[in-house]
Design a protein around this nucleic acid. Structure first.
Length: 560
RNA sequence: GCGCUUGUAGCUCAAUUGGACAGAGCAUCUGACUACGGAUCAGAAGGUUCGGGGUUCGAAUCCCUGCAAGCGCGCCA
């Protein structure tokens, strides 16, 4: 808001100086150093050459012109460094920010309409339904879910989805492994060897026994009666999905849509897609297989759609799936996003190519590729292996440290950077996890509110409280932190970087703890005017923390 | 070999995407209210932003190059 007014003022001042700059290209930022003012612009620096003036000269004339402009809260302007124009405002501008925070509350503050009228589909996790979710998968759950929350807060109609690869070789192997365990036979070499397979086989056995009329039939015939390995596979699919969804639910991650590959194929979507591709002339036959000319786009080579034995590769249903994501139900999706691990990045060019062949504009499909998680236990890397069955389940991680610590840990750093999680180290240091620092700030505020209510002073910050007493360094720092939230939300969305919210929420908590330490609120020697203003600031902070923690999918506790 | 991603304090990571003196948390050291919740606060120490060139008012960020790490390069998924 202030930013828009400043842009307008600078633009007007430049016009009066005869320098024409597109308002959208006027750079404005909040300086990191307090003595550089509240806002700073580098327009003079950037446009000096075009204006034919020395940067500092232009800056000085702009600063002078700006000083005479009708700009609310303006205290003074100055030129600094190579040609920055720094703007110093009176604290009243931050008091207005706090008023807006209190007025708009958790629902409306830092909410944008950037995506009004647009729909987005976000797919993430989509781990094969052949076992429990690996702890590394938690990163995609936390990231995808928080990104979806950012999209929603920015006004996008958002659908989250999980693709269930319940068809093909891996499912067959899974069913065979489960059946083998059930019958006490050796698990195939390339099958699933994890401990969970044995446990699930026991569950299946119990179901088979209780389902059979006599209760004594041998398991082999009971299983065969239901469909043998195929039944084991489909039973196992359901068992795995229940496990996965419960684990994600525990981390506060949910999906709007679970898309089964089997159902997709059965619906004829795959045939429709391949028909459309061949009609458009993008397919060709070679060596008995059917190919898609993805190299006509960014892909390095063409890809097989249908093997020479007639079976579709995984790629074909995937195309059909992505194609239909653009038109789920009765509404068109403007943007389809896949969140993928680095081990799948090679897959992006081919699916992007296929989407363009099907008539979707290039910018309507986006792949976010994140780095995988390395899991450690007591300082040693754990390689997950289907063969030996070694893995760490998210469930174990959540059980060990709790959902908030786990989720915060996943969202602590950029998705571009590799993440190492040592489950022992994280457990041992769970109490020092930064999430508690933030939650503690929220709980403290709740505690202050309770105390204030018990004391009968200002049950809640009354509207129209005079905020002008808020001029101390700690108070201003806290106000500044609050002021930034709307742009943090917008930037985090634009950069697809939920971790920026994590960084911000820690900053806000730090500013609050500092304020709380130095600025008594309810002490008897605090005047009612100061007390009320500080109560307002406290409530505003609570709103900011609640918004940030909600975006991160982490609880904002009233007490700890 | 080619491609994608990454390289920042002892460790784990940030850095308003080209801005001013690169910041936090752990870990180390030193301090702080008769507690509105000490799960807090203040201070100290810690840096050739992997090396080398370049672009410009200005580079951790962009370009070139070298080094190192992870991942990918199937009629597997």
């Amino acid at each position: 808001m202030m930013e828009a007014e400043l842009t307008r003022a600078i633009s007007g001042a430049l016009e009066r100086l005869g320098v024409h700059v597109d308002p959208s290209r006027i750079g404005l930022e909040r300086p990191s150093r307090a003595d550089h003012g509240d806002w700073s612009s580098n327009v003079a620096l950037v446009n000096a050459k075009a204006a034919g003036q020395a940067p500092r000269d232009l800056a000085q004339r702009l600063a002078d012109e700006l000083a005479t402009a009708d700009l609310p809260h303006l205290e003074r302007t100055e030129v600094a460094g190579p040609g920055f124009v720094n703007v110093h405002l009176s604290p009243s501008w931050l008091h207005e920010v706090l008023e807006a925070v209190l007025d708009q509350g958790t629902e409306r503050y830092a909410r944008h309409d950037l995506g009004a009228g647009q729909t987005v589909s976000l797919e993430f996790v989509s781990a094969n339904p052949t076992g429990p979710l690996h702890a590394g998968g938690g990163r995609w759950g936390a990231f995808g879910d928080s990104l979806a929350r950012l999209f929603r807060r920015c006004g996008y109609d958002t659908v989250t989805e999980y693709y269930v690869n319940d068809r093909g070789t891996q499912m067959e192997l899974f069913g065979r492994s489960l059946a083998a365990r059930l019958l006490g036979e050796p698990v195939p070499d390339d099958g699933y060897h994890g401990q969970y397979v044995a446990e699930w086989a026991n569950e299946l056995a119990a179901e088979l026994r209780s389902g059979s009329a006599s209760g004594e039939d041998d398991l082999g015939t009971a299983l065969d009666a239901l469909g043998g390995e195929a039944y084991a596979a489909s039973w196992g699919r359901g068992r795995a999905l229940r496990d996965v969804s419960e684990a994600l639910e525990a981390m506060n991650v949910g999906f709007d849509h679970w898309q089964s590959e089997n159902e997709l194929v059965a619906s004829g979507a795959m045939d429709g897609a391949i028909g459309q591709l061949s009609d458009a002339g993008w397919t060709y036959a070679q060596d008995g297989a059917e190919w898609l000319a993805t190299s006509k786009f960014d892909d390095t080579k063409d890809r097989v759609l249908r093997r020479s034995d007639g079976e579709p590769t995984y790629f074909l249903p995937d195309i059909a799936y992505h194609h239909q994501k653009f038109c789920r139900g009765d509404r068109a999706i403007d943007l389809v996003i896949d969140v993928l691990g680095a081990d799948h990045h090679g897959y992006v060019p081919r699916i992007a190519a296929a989407m363009q062949m099907l008539g979707h504009p290039p910018e309507s499909y986006e792949a976010i590729v994140g780095q995988n998680v390395t899991l450690m236990r007591d300082g040693k890397v754990i390689e997950l292996s289907k063969r030996t069955g070694t893995m760490v389940e998210v469930r174990e991680l959540i059980d060990a440290v709790g959902p908030d610590v786990a989720r915060f840990a996943f969202l602590l750093q950029s998705i571009d950077s590799r993440q190492t999680i040592d489950i022992d180290l994280l457990s041992a240091q769970a109490a020092e996890n930064p999430v508690f620092y933030v939650q503690y700030a929220h709980a403290r505020i709740a505690s202050v509110a309770r105390r204030a209510e018990a004391d009968g002073v200002a049950p809640r910050p009354p509207a129209g409280t005079d905020l002008s007493p808020l001029t101390g360094d700690r108070e201003l720092a806290l106000l500044r932190a609050l002021e930034v939230l709307p742009s943090v939300v917008a930037i985090a969305l634009r950069e697809r970087a939920p971790h920026k919210v994590t960084t911000w929420v820690r900053d806000l908590a730090a500013a609050f703890h500092g304020f709380y330490h130095d600025c008594p609120i309810l002490h008897s020697d605090v005047s009612p005017e100061v007390r009320d203003a500080r109560l307002c600031l406290t409530e505003g902070t609570r709103i900011g923390l609640a918004i940030g923690l909600d975006l991160l999918g982490v609880d904002a506790p009233e007490a700890m």
